[in-house]
Write a protein that binds this DNA or RNA. Structure first.
Lengths: 330, 330
DNA sequence: CTGAAAGCGCTTACAG
DNA sequence: CTGAAAGCGCTTACAG
């Protein structure tokens, strides 16, 4: 520590720079001036080692990079997380895991990283049942999930979410109210709670209306799967008159397929999405969709983690408002 | 180090785990087994401190989070970087800086981080002249830029790029060849070399064709600026018959404004974009645009940095191929 | 309010 | 091929 040249010991310098309570104002002032003049920046590794805190948090996205970054909702969550963390003293460590298989290569690489002390806390952007190990990560580190984890654990996991089931039900009910009778759904990946809940909501609304909940085709939140799902619906159920897609990306793709097949949207087939992400407004027919405050949710995730790290008491789950946004597609 | 229980010293454990050359096969095997059984993961801070290497690299995006993550080209670059780094032993540290001002708060926070030894190298996703300090970061750390830096420095900076000027010129020439005569441009931010080069390319093509290069309105790569630019062009030059937008996001927004104004695309006004990002195919009229292999460029950036870190000799600049992709808009 | 000293958990010349 | 020892650059009880 060259800053010893300020005329005090390293201990004092350390304390002054870290703004500890019991240091005289004048010393703090002086030390900081000298440090600034010398362009001194404490070595982070040494600091971590000595203080047992890394002052960094990880944002884990357990999806192959390509997929993760193609989803505008996830991107918005990231933006929110990034914004909130930036305002803190913490550093953001992005970790996109391309594992795929259960506990495969990349995933265990990820596990090793998280166990190596590089971060003080973890944010999980989306979780699949195949990534069950994430559910127990909180035995080691504070963790906050975006979206309800796939399973309830005993010490529960913190999470931020919307009422997926209720919101989906309201969206489908809008279709029912506008006179649709053959309402299909293109689902999200079966191993994610948000997707499952949205399908349940679709079923709820149809059942309540006395309509059959049979037109269900699987998707995985990607545009390709949305297009494929829509094609299949048209082939197998040409009389379909409405589609609830579990996210906007799939809804936008479905709209494209419909238009290309000569079906008018919404007059022939109405389409509702979920997320109200950028995909909703740029779709060929602007989407009626469920607004989910994705960026705000990212901020809340980060904020919750930061508060846990600060030792505050925070609620285990935070459910934010969602609402149906009416545009042209339904 | 609890793994001393393997019957050897810490030194040997360290060497075995790090796969150093001069350790007997049997020892390596044994130590690794014991370590795996005990779930031992070396502390990264201690390792960094002792070895003077962090085994992490930073991806710096000197844009406000909102902006950065709204640009599909940058997202693709990120995906490429992430993919390549994932395959290495390095960790990816994402740093989105919202500074804005010259050397302001967030920017100096960023500078401190980079100086604190958290990373062994830096990737810069996009650079503005206002971020001049980035140009000299290579005095301290290996750095690779995405896109030619705004200024030539003496020890030059490494970068990956496309021939923005040539590609833009070819794109505009396509408009000229198809009979357009009043060809406007909506530019990117004036403080970025890629934007400047694309405007030059537009000018080149018009000059070569003996057409006036006067219809130039400023944009900043955002959808809003593209829409605003298009509105302004329509108001001030209602006879415009083609537009070269410096990126797809602006081009897609321009298409929307044109359609809403009752102009047919491309028959009334042709539109060409740049990037061939996801915005090109999802535009209301699929965009004719300059394909830039964004994800590949991200991979190359990462790969170049990794090779520098490995001590290899690498070329200062790598220019990848771009090509005009014809779709419906021009 | 400030010093002197120990220690965080590894790696790495230096011997052997 | 492996040990013993020093040291990486900080923080933090412990005294005073």
């Amino acid at each position: 520590m060259v800053a010893v040249e300020a005329g005090v010991t390293r201990s004092t310098v350390s304390r002054a720079l870290n703004g500890e309570p019991d240091v005289s104002k004048s010393t703090i002032q002086h030390v900081r001036e000298v440090a600034a003049r010398m362009g001194y920046v404490p070595n982070r590794a040494a600091r971590s080692l000595a203080s047992a805190r890394s002052m960094a948090v990880a944002l884990v996205i357990p999806e192959p990079g390509k997929l993760a970054l193609a989803d505008p909702h996830l991107i918005a969550v990231m933006a929110g997380v990034s914004r909130r963390i930036e305002q803190s003293d913490y550093l953001l460590n992005l970790m996109v895991s391309s594992d795929g298989a259960s506990g495969g290569g990349a995933s265990s690489k990820l596990q090793r990283y998280l166990a190596s002390g590089v971060v003080d806390g973890v944010l999980v952007a989306s979780q699949h049942t195949r990534d069950a190990w994430l559910l127990h990560l909180h035995d080691t580190l504070p963790v906050v999930f975006g979206g309800r984890p796939s399973e309830l654990t005993d010490p529960p996991n913190y999470f931020i979410d919307v009422d997926n089931r209720g919101a989906a039900s309201a969206a489908v009910n809008h279709l029912v109210q506008s006179g649709r009778r053959r309402i299909a759904t293109i689902t999200g990946p079966a191993d994610m709670s948000a997707a499952e809940d949205r399908t349940e909501g679709w079923r709820d609304a149809l059942t309540a209306a006395g309509l059959p909940a049979t037109l269900e085709v699987p998707g995985d939140f990607t545009a390709d799967s949305g297009a494929e799902g829509m094609r299949r619906l048209l082939a197998e159920h040409p009389d379909v008159d409405a589609v609830f897609a579990a996210n906007d990306v799939m809804a936008a793709a479905a709209v494209s397929v419909l238009l290309d097949a000569g079906r008018a949207v919404p007059s022939d087939v109405a389409v509702v999405g979920f997320d109200d992400s950028s995909a909703a407004s740029t779709a060929r027919v602007p989407l009626t969709t469920v607004n989910q405050p994705s960026e705000r949710m990212g901020e809340l995730m980060a904020d919750t983690l930061l508060r846990i790290l600060a030792g505050d008491d925070v609620p285990v789950s935070t459910v934010v408002e969602s609402r149906l946004v009416r545009r042209a597609s339904a």
